[in-house]
Design a protein around this nucleic acid. Structure first.
Length: 258
DNA sequence: GTCCAGGGGTATC
DNA sequence: GATACCCATGGA
């Protein structure tokens, strides 16, 4: 059992804000499946207790190496964002494994978080032997049906043969536009899912994924009328720039808790 | 029973 | 290039 001191961090907000699907909560401990490792973590004030993972990997996963104060100061200048910012205090964007993130958000389309978590749990049990399935391991259609993915099943079967770890390693060398364009050539990955992958696993923190909740909350806070997806993305970029991803996650989590 | 959900693909205009 | 409709499924 080891621990790390960290300020302005909320394990609960971070885990429960809809950016991650492979975890469970038992008696204050979050058990987290991160690619091929399972680790446990628990927050006690400004201390984070952890086991099953190394310190460097933990810091990387929770993005504890970032200058979070800069994010808070920049977004705090937006008065309309302050309530969400206050509510979400300590929420960090995670640095997910790109393949795991891709599978999760392909499953997410036109679905809901409890169901996505069930889908991912089933995939883990059927194809990963308790770990997250490796790229290339999702081939048994009968077992795949047990995950109840519906029409998303065909996307996963195809992705499983189209991408691997080297593919994502290459994506990390590209800029936002190049990486998004590449992702959107893949089946089942459109603009929104691509943006989620870029924000949550490829360090593109200026990305602003827009789903029905984000569209709703931005229209409520800033416009009082309907806007298109592209209008909202353009607004977010001009308003929050390099920190748009954090603004998005705060707004999403805050609005969904209301 | 009806509506909704971290949307994408395709046809149609 | 925008818009309309379909796609499986399960929870509210």
């Amino acid at each position: 059992m080891r621990r790390i001191f960290i300020r302005d961090f909320s394990l609960e907000h971070t885990m429960e804000s809809g950016q991650y699907f492979a975890y469970s909560l038992t008696e204050g401990w979050y058990t987290i499946l991160h690619r091929n490792i399972t680790f446990r973590v628990r927050q006690e004030g400004d201390w984070l207790r952890y086991e099953g993972i190394g310190r460097d990997a933990l810091v990387d996963f929770f993005r504890l190496d970032e200058d979070h104060n800069t994010v808070l100061e920049a977004l705090g200048k937006d008065v309309k964002l302050r309530e969400a910012l206050s509510y979400c205090r300590g929420l960090r964007l995670l640095r997910q494994d790109p393949w795991q993130c891709t599978v999760g958000f392909v499953c997410s389309q036109n679905s809901n978080i409890p169901r996505i978590k069930q889908n991912i749990t089933s995939l883990t049990q059927n194809f990963g032997d308790g770990m997250f399935p490796m790229p290339g391991s999702i081939v048994d259609k009968a077992k795949l049906q047990e995950a109840r993915l519906g029409y998303r099943e065909k996307y996963l079967l195809a992705l499983n043969t189209l991408v691997d770890d080297d593919y994502f390693k290459h994506l990390k060398t590209l800029n936002y536009e190049e990486a998004k364009s590449a992702l959107m050539k893949l089946p089942g990955i459109g603009s929104k899912v691509a943006d989620c992958i870029l924000l949550f696993s490829l360090d593109k923190l200026s990305t602003f994924p827009v789903d029905v909740w984000i569209k709703r909350v931005v229209e409520e806070l800033y416009f009082n009328e309907e806007k298109t997806m592209n209008e909202i993305i353009a607004f977010a970029s001009s308003k929050w720039g390099e920190h748009a991803g954090y603004a998005q996650q705060y707004l999403y989590h805050w609005r969904r808790q209301q």
